[in-house]
């Protein structure tokens, strides 16, 4: 492995680490609110990754000089930033929807813990089976 490349592209390396943390929280944590946090972490890390792909060392914003109307010599790539804005909107709506489901599940079962809820359902099923 070329570790020097990881050190130079430390934004991306950090993004992948954060992504893994978010992903594992989403998959493995039984608490539903923590799952929402996991979703948020993984999508934010994606935006960090994407945004850092558009950053160019020493680049300036893509705005013409107001007097001379000359473009700066080195410019950052703005397309990833624009796409991230779309991504953030998507991520916010996903979070809102996830929280709404969590709220309804809490109102129905009185618990945020997925293991506990699944246990409750199994107990109910067994009761119905015995009757």
């Amino acid at each position: 492995m070329n570790f020097q490349a990881l050190l130079i592209n430390y934004h991306e390396a950090a993004a992948v680490i954060v992504f893994c943390i978010g992903f594992m929280t989403l998959m493995l944590h039984p608490n539903l609110i923590k799952k929402v946090i996991g979703v948020n972490l993984s999508s934010s890390s994606m935006f960090l990754f994407f945004g850092s792909r558009g950053y160019i060392e020493g680049g300036e914003a893509t705005i013409l000089d107001p007097v001379t109307l000359e473009a700066p010599a080195v410019m950052v790539n703005l397309i990833p930033t624009g796409l991230i804005l779309t991504g953030i909107v998507v991520s916010v709506s996903i979070t809102a929807f996830f929280l709404a489901i969590t709220l309804r599940i809490y109102n129905r079962y009185g618990s945020m813990d997925l293991d506990e809820i699944l246990g409750l359902i199994n107990i109910n099923k067994n009761k119905r089976f015995q009757q």
Partner: peptide, 13 residues
């Protein structure tokens, strides 16, 4: 509700 939650988690991944 629970099935929708499971579906959402898989689809988000």
């Amino acid at each position: 509700l629970l099935e929708s939650m499971r579906y959402l988690i898989m689809y988000l991944i």
